[in-house]
């Protein structure tokens, strides 16, 4: 699949973190970026849009990221979820991977890591 055809769902309670992710991804010309600000919203938006990739924070109000992964996996066992979190302890990493996350990025955000995740999955973006 080409990057220009992909839908990316970003979920973080921080408007600043969402903007930073958006600023990194937008120049790669993806088809659409959808934003959610808590675990419940990301589950609802996943159902509605079936995105190709989800960037998901863990520590969030209403519903945390780990609970959200479980629910997303029930909706779509092939969901591609990448955790982007300030807390990257071994046990959380293990838990996230066990629940179905495919990658884990520790904040602060690093544009190279985000770009490499996108380019390893999708074509284009130069």
């Amino acid at each position: 699949m080409k990057l220009e055809d992909t839908k990316i769902l970003i979920c973080d309670d921080s408007i600043l973190a969402r903007k930073q992710l958006n600023d990194i991804i937008s120049p790669l010309k993806v088809n659409r970026i959808i934003e959610a600000s808590n675990g419940q919203e990301v589950v609802d938006l996943y159902k509605e849009h079936s995105p190709d990739l989800v960037f998901l924070d863990i520590v969030m109000p209403v519903k945390d990221g780990l609970s959200a992964i479980s629910e997303i996996m029930e909706i779509d066992p092939d969901a591609d979820v990448v955790i982007v979190s300030s807390v990257g302890t071994q046990s959380q990493l293990r838990q996230a991977i066990q629940l179905g996350a495919r990658d884990f990025i520790q904040k602060p955000l690093n544009s190279c890591q985000i770009e490499s995740i996108l380019k390893s999955r999708f074509e284009g973006g130069e």
């Binding site: 921080s14 600043l16 973190a17 300030s86 807390v87 990257g88 071994q90 046990s91 520790q106 904040k107």
Partner: peptide
């Protein structure tokens, strides 16, 4: 949000250090 984000990243890194 910058104030919140800095505090969150700092506390997250603290948790990682304590875990390691």
């Amino acid at each position: 949000d910058s104030i919140k984000d800095f505090l969150n990243i700092h506390n997250g890194l603290f948790n990682v250090n304590i875990s390691n």
